[in-house]
Design a protein around this nucleic acid. Structure first.
Length: 473
RNA sequence: GUCCCCAUCGUCUAGCCUGGCCUAGGACAUUGCCCUUUCAAGGCAGUAACACGGGUUCAAAUCCCGUUGGGGACACCA
């Protein structure tokens, strides 16, 4: 069999959304598995809705999730001659005809048909009129076969049969000379040698319109695969009111691209009970017959869990790198400059089990920048009290006697002190925690001391003691 | 309205094609317990589903038909 060639063909009318990424992902996985070619094609024939910013957003989004393409991006507006030439070919061979019906009239007739309970399809008024030459503002329609059936052997849905009688004559060239979607896709898919057209479920009924055009043009008909839709919690098509749908919004919220990919691929595809997959595993294990046939509800909770898994298992240095922009945005730009990559990676290790997103992580990590700690009011009020001050002072004296920091030694010293004083661990640990981090919740105390280093640990302890002495209970 | 697709825990799904191993498995969420210097993480346990009705068969989540329900398409949008 010849080489697999697949494509992702979004229209640039907004940001790149989650559904689009999933469609791209399935195409990409198949291409990589089959050592095929993955093509990016921008379907911008609707001049009024397409924007260059959207094209940039698509490219940016694809790059962020790491779906690289082998050819393109092609823009349909740069291929107009091709569509016109093929449309003329259909006209010459009698497989297309000019239609002078006005858009408003068509609309009115559609409404009328609908009111009568009929299908609102084109009534074929201009089909046999045989207008000579191109009338002024006519559109070109494809003369679709009315008898027989069009059969799709869908990669995902299996055999789907349409009666040709339900397919009307679609416009292939608008009166302004621009091709319509149903025509430009066919020409492009054929000319680009696409072997497998994999797209959303919502295109399933377009397929019986497109197959006859491939045939009329003398092109080989590709295989088709129709992916089920992604729905919101209320089981309607995923849209803004279900929350963020732009892929880049997830980047901003602190999701890792690998987690997004893993979540999205599991939404509609499975490999037994396995939940977590590396990219390489996905490429190896992907197969059409385990793609779900029914729509899936997007579940932000599971995405969040998966992101947490990726934060835990990704190399800390990589997480640190992804975290840096979030830190800058949180106003820690100057602080960030003073620390090393190694230290930041170490900090990630400290908090990675607590943060579910990079945005979360920023808050977990914040107390370890800068010389002093900022005490949370309630935390300080509860734990940095005049009663605890002497205890903290004694601990400080002990620590000051230890010339260099060693986690084991300091921990040992701390525990012995607790024992000698005959107090509970928590009675000392919480005040110390607040002194060192300003908060009641943090990673292990001795890990915190380690990341702060000896000097800052002592400085913060002192500041905590001062605060405790003057605390009005 | 017409055509098309779909139907297993709240959600994602395994099992369905090639009926018995299904007293239906896993994951997220949720509940309880354990661990514990806090918060997490982790461990253990629990609640929870074959839409309904008919067939076929010794046997049906699995095959067939119907009903109901959901989704999609029906543009000079893509």
């Amino acid at each position: 069999m010849s080489q697999v060639r697949v494509r992702f063909a979004p229209s640039p009318t907004g940001f790149l959304h989650i559904g689009g990424v999933r469609t791209a992902l399935f195409n990409w996985l198949f291409a990589r598995q089959q050592q095929g070619v993955f093509i990016l094609r921008i379907e911008d024939t609707d001049q009024s809705r397409s924007t260059d910013e959207s094209i940039q957003a698509i490219i940016e989004g694809m790059k962020w999730v790491g779906l690289d393409w082998d050819e393109g991006p092609f823009r349909q507006t740069e291929r107009m001659d091709l569509y016109r030439a093929h449309a003329m070919k259909l006209l010459e061979t009698g497989q297309a005809y000019w239609c002078v019906c006005k858009a408003e009239d068509l609309e009115a007739r559609r409404k009328e048909a609908e009111a009568k309970g009929l299908s609102p399809r084109y009534d074929g008024r201009c089909r046999n009129v045989k207008l000579a030459g191109q009338p002024g503002d006519a559109a070109l329609r494809f003369k679709a076969r009315q008898e027989g059936q069009t059969v799709i052997e869908d990669l995902i849905k299996g055999r789907v049969v349409f009666d040709n009688a339900v397919v009307d004559d679609v416009i292939i060239l608008r009166s302004n000379g621009y091709p319509t979607y149903n025509f430009s896709v066919v020409v492009d898919d054929a000319l680009m040698g696409i072997t497998h057209v994999v797209r959303g479920d919502d295109h399933l009924t377009n397929t019986p319109r497109q197959i006859p055009i491939f045939e009329a043009l003398g092109f080989a008909v590709p295989r088709f695969g129709h992916l089920p839709m992604i729905l919101g919690a209320d089981k309607t098509r995923l849209s803004k009111r279900h929350g963020a749908t732009s892929i880049m919004a997830y980047k901003d919220m602190g999701y890792l691209p690998d987690a997004m990919v893993n979540y999205l691929v599991r939404l509609g595809w499975s490999h037994g009970d396995q939940e977590l997959f590396t990219r390489q595993e996905l490429i190896e294990k992907f197969s059409w017959d385990h793609v779900q046939t029914s729509a899936a509800v997007f579940n932000p909770d599971k995405l969040l869990w998966m992101n947490a898994e990726y934060i835990k298992m990704s190399p800390p240095s990589e997480v640190a790198q992804a975290l840096a922009p979030h830190l800058e945005q949180a106003g820690l730009k100057d602080e960030l400059r003073t620390v090393s990559n190694e230290w930041l990676a170490q900090l990630v290790v400290l908090v990675k089990e607590r943060a579910k997103t990079l945005a979360d992580m920023v808050e977990w990590v914040r107390p370890y920048f800068g010389q002093g700690a900022t005490f949370e009011v309630d935390a300080a009020k509860k734990f940095l009290t005049p009663a605890t001050a002497p205890l903290l002072q004694k601990l400080l004296t002990r620590f000051e006697a230890l010339p260099s920091f060693s986690k084991l030694v300091w921990e040992d010293s701390f525990k012995k002190f607790v024992e000698e004083e005959g107090i509970k661990m928590g009675a000392l640990a919480q005040p110390v925690r607040v002194a060192l981090t300003g908060r009641t919740a943090s990673p292990g105390l001795f890990e915190v001391m380690e990341i702060l280093g000896r000097e800052r640990t002592l400085v913060r302890l002192k500041a905590g003691i001062e605060h405790a002495k003057t605390n009005q209970a």
